[in-house]
Amino acid sequence: MITKKVILTGNFGVGKTSLFNRFVHNRFDDKYLTTIGVKVNKKVMEINGEGLSILLWDIAGEVTQDKVPVSYFLGAAGIIYVFDLSRPLTYANIGKDLEHLKEMLPDSVIRIVGNKKDLLSAEELEQSLKEFPFDCDITTSAKTGESVEDLFTKLGEALLERV
C-alpha cells in the first residue's frame, strides 16, 4: 500500500483540527498537539480500487511562523491549506504562505480549503469566495462533515496520479 504524508496547515482557529478529527476517527490524544505543535494520524482509503494510507500531520501555528519546525513540513506529498470562509483575516497572508510552501515542497499537491461554510448563507458564501484572492479548491464544514470526505478523496486521487 502507498503511504503519503499530508499536512494540514493554515491560520489559528480555521478548523484544521476539526477537519482532522472529522476525517480520522482513530485518534491520538490532543495533548500531543499542544506539547510539540503537531498531531499525526492515519487514514486508510480506497481510491479506484487502490489502497492509500494518508499520514495526516495537523500542524499548529502559521506557515511562515518561525516557531513551527520546518521539518514538520518536509517530506509531505500533499498540503491542505485551510482558511475560514467567515473571517477574511485568516487568508490575509495566503499569498506569502503558498509561496513559502511551494518553495519548501515544490512537488507536492496543494489544496486550498475554505472551511466553516455552515456559518454562511449561500449569498454570503458566494460573496466570500468572490473576495478570496485565489481559487478555492473546495469549501467544507468540519462541523456538519460536508465535503470533508470529498476533499480527501480528491486529494488522494491527485496523490495516486503522481506515483
Binding site: K5, V40, G75
Partner: peptide, 26 residues
C-alpha cells in the same frame, strides 16, 4: 522527513505502527 514507516519488527501486537512512526518523527 515524511515519517512513513518503511519496515518494522515487533513480536507483539501494538498500537498502529504507522501512527507511532509518524509521531516519533514529529
Amino acid at each position: 522527513d515524511s515519517g512513513v514507516l518503511l519496515g518494522h519488527y515487533s513480536p507483539t501486537e501494538m498500537l498502529d505502527r504507522d501512527m507511532v512512526a509518524g509521531m516519533l518523527t514529529a
